[in-house]
Simulated scan of single mutants.
Amino acid sequence: MGYFGGMGLLSWVEGFKHWLAFLLLFGIGAKMIYESYSHDVDVKTHRLTHKVMCLLAIATSLDAMAAGFTLNLMIIEPIVACFIIGLMTAILSYVGVWIGSQSGTWLEHKAEMLGGIV
């Protein structure tokens, strides 16, 4: 669905797609750096209800649809892109878990700042 929707939007964003990607990534990174400075220790935990799970499922679906939109901005076959995305997700997830287990508590809130900078 996202892939076909992206085909229709491609002509609208063709001229400034690199700036759009830059602004989105810059905004996410800036928010991560900002949040790394807020040392709110009293974070409330919420119960995981059906309503929360439904909202998370909708958010995940919207994220996947946005990823489908971006596939049209690149000159690559969708099957190849899915394989590359899956492979890189597996590798980087493994590396992230390994780094997290090695860093322990010495990295703490600096990890979020590092993620925002990257």
Rank of each mutant, 00 (worst) to 15 (best):
G2I: 03
F4C: 03
G5I: 01
G5M: 09
G5A: 01
G5L: 13
G6K: 04
G8I: 06
G8D: 02
L9P: 01
S11L: 09
W12N: 09
V13L: 12
V13T: 11
V13H: 02
V13N: 07
G15D: 08
K17L: 00
W19F: 03
L20C: 02
L20F: 12
A21N: 06
F22A: 13
L23I: 10
I28C: 01
I28D: 02
I28F: 13
G29F: 08
G29V: 09
K31S: 00
M32Q: 05
Y37F: 15
S38F: 04
D40R: 15
V43H: 07
V43F: 14
T45N: 02
H46K: 10
L48M: 15
L48A: 04
T49E: 08
T49G: 01
H50K: 11
H50I: 02
M53D: 04
C54F: 11
L55Y: 12
L56G: 06
A57K: 02
A57H: 07
A57R: 05
A57V: 09
A59L: 15
A59V: 10
L62Y: 07
A64F: 14
A64T: 05
A66C: 15
G68T: 08
F69V: 14
F69L: 15
F69K: 03
L71V: 06
N72W: 00
I75H: 13
I75W: 09
I75D: 13
I76R: 04
I76N: 05
E77P: 05
P78N: 09
C82N: 11
L87Y: 06
A90T: 15
I91A: 03
I91E: 02
V95G: 08
G96P: 10
W98S: 15
G100F: 00
S101F: 04
S103F: 08
S103E: 05
G104S: 01
T105Q: 11
T105N: 12
W106H: 08
L107V: 06
L107G: 02
H109K: 12
A111N: 13
A111Y: 08
L114Y: 06
L114R: 00
G115L: 06
V118W: 14
